[in-house]
Nucleic acid binder design. Structure first.
Length: 506
RNA sequence: GGUCCGUUCGUCUAGUCGGCCUAGGACAUCAGGUUUUCAUCCUGAAGAUCAGGGGUUCGAAUCCCCUACGGACUACCA
């Protein structure tokens, strides 16, 4: 009897999806693929105060760019919808009320101000924070301390209330985490968390448990920040009578700052110069722009491969894996327990590896688009040849233009370092006589050009260094690049000679 | 402060239930080679007394305890 695997990624639309979130989604997706199960996207928008317009669309677009496809969710629907918690609003209250009836939860009428006062008072007498729990609830305003009549009166009068879980005293709650093993927590340190808010919405805790149950989720794979509240979730399953179908838990380690301590945040990206979001994001309120991997010139496959290896490894020395391979070898048991510091250098390496493997026609298509802003059009065949020459030299897709501009227009800027080191008083003469030599030559093959070049060197008793670097400089403006004769052959005789005669350094 | 989780080269990590680990790989770094350049690629070097201290054991990075450090959580946020 094997129940089909069903997992979910359940972000809140409170801003752009962070790469840690992308990784959580990825692991869920990989896990589902591997087990032939379903991957669900559920939007947890129970807090209207934190709702950010555009965030949900951003999340969906990000997953799409990454190639993480979901089987059920807000866009495609599915048999367990709706998949937006705000649209499931009415479903939660009955469960909360059922818990109250069963004595597993209670109504609480304390106002935020009153609770704040409690916290202040507590701070004065001890360093321990105030907690709404078995020790304090009996002196607060709730259905445990008020008479049934009074509770009914307040409820009927429409007084604001919340429903809190009633955490039992002196118990130990155990759970088995796939990544961390057995975790146990004493109930005395748990507090009576709010399950149902005064605005009629459930909190994460209730909504999460109810939806996971209703949607028949078998494995909850989420960030480590949820580990402390997981025992309370176990209690909820128990109280709701769902313990026998409770999903298995797997709490993922966090992504940490590359330097220093703490978890990776939006600010770190700006500070250290790399994106922390998959796509570019413009904050609708402040207008602040955060960079994205897509815009920075990353291939989604490289980005995903890199992310997959952060905190998990397959146990073999191979590092480059496509989606299919990842899905077949992924396992939660091999997820590292400790948080992983984000390594931007390695991300670059992955990107370079993937770009190098890209077929020339595909890159040519990208280069063609990169040419548009410069008002340049070129034949596809020509572009393919250019890409073939430069692709193992670039790290980002955005480098395409920088590394290929001289294939399309005469250089206007010249590498200063090369001028300083290689441009001697006799160099202009050498370039001029080489140009004269080339005048009568057929540019139809790189080998031909190379032969002529060496003959020229020999005839004038010159070393390669005296002519090659200056030649490259006047023709391309650069210090390095693909084979010089390949370049000359591609751009042709006319362009080559024009550049050899018309260069002008500033 | 409290609770939970964690701790192997600068970074990501390997190291099946203790012996094959004088701790392996990758990125980054450095040095050579290839390329007359740059990049790729190849070779090599350096880099971790396995956080520290106690145990258990013939034998521990691997098991147990303590300490230190780090992280998460501690909202009518998720």
């Amino acid at each position: 009897m094997t129940t089909p695997v069903r997992v979910r990624f359940a972000p809140s639309p409170t801003g752009p999806l962070h790469i840690g979130g992308v990784r959580t989604a990825l692991y869920n997706y990989l896990f589902a693929r591997q087990h032939g199960g379903q991957f669900i996207l559920r939007i947890e928008d129970t807090d209207q105060n934190r709702y950010v317009p555009g965030a949900e669309e951003y999340i969906i677009e990000s997953l799409d760019w990454c190639g993480i496809k979901f089987d059920e969710g807000v866009t495609g629907g599915g048999p367990y919808g709706p998949y937006r918690q705000s649209e499931r609003k009415e479903q939660y209250r009955p469960y909360a009320e059922q818990l109250v009836r069963d004595g597993k939860a209670y109504y609480a009428f304390d106002t935020p101000a009153e609770l704040e006062k409690e916290r202040e008072e507590q701070k004065k007498i001890s360093p321990d924070a105030f907690q709404y729990d078995s020790k304090t609830r009996l002196r607060l305003k709730n259905s445990l301390t008020l008479t049934a009549g009074e509770v009914k009166r307040r409820l009927d009068a429409g007084e604001p209330y919340v429903i809190r879980i009633c955490i039992p005293a002196d118990q130990v709650v155990k759970l088995t985490d796939i990544i961390r093993g057995d975790v146990s927590v004493h109930t005395n340190i748990l507090d009576d968390k709010v399950l149902f808010k005064s605005d009629g919405m459930p909190t994460y805790h209730l909504a999460n448990v109810v939806d996971d149950h209703l949607m028949k989720i078998t494995h909850v794979i989420r960030g480590e920040e949820w580990l402390p509240s997981a025992p309370m979730h176990v209690l909820l399953y128990r109280y709701l009578g769902w313990e026998d179908t409770m999903p298995q838990f797997a709490h993922l380690p966090l992504l940490l700052k590359p330097d220093g301590n703490g978890k990776l945040s939006k600010r770190d990206g700006d500070r250290l110069g790399f994106p922390v979001f998959p796509l570019k994001w413009t904050d609708p309120a402040s207008g602040e722009v955060s960079s994205g991997y897509r815009e920075a010139g990353y291939l989604p496959e490289a980005f995903i491969n890199f992310l997959a290896m952060l905190g998990w490894n397959p146990g073999v020395e191979q590092e480059l894996f496509n989606f299919g391979e990842l899905a077949s070898i992924f396992s939660l048991e091999r997820v590292h327990k400790a948080g992983a510091k984000f390594d931007f250098e390695k991300a670059k390496w992955f990107n370079q590896q993937y770009i190098k493997k890209l077929p020339d026609p595909f890159l040519a298509g990208l280069l063609s688009k990169a040419l548009v802003p410069h008002g340049i059009e070129a034949g596809h065949e020509y572009l393919e040849k250019v890409c073939g020459l430069i692709k193992e030299r670039i790290t980002f897709l955005n480098d395409l233009w920088d590394y290929s501009c001289y294939f399309f227009e005469d250089p206007r800027v010249f590498d200063q370092e090369t001028i300083r080191k290689r441009w001697k008083p006799e160099t202009p003469g050498i370039i001029a006589s080489l140009a004269a030599e080339l005048e009568a030559v057929d540019f139809s093959a790189p080998d031909l050009l190379e032969g002529i070049f060496h003959q020229f060197l020999e005839k004038n008793s010159l070393g390669t260094g005296a002519a090659m670097s200056p030649l490259r400089l006047v023709v391309t403006g650069k210090a390095g690049g693909p084979g010089m004769f390949e370049i000359m052959h591609l751009i042709g005789k006319e362009s080559t000679l024009r550049r050899m005669h018309g260069y002008r350094f500033e």
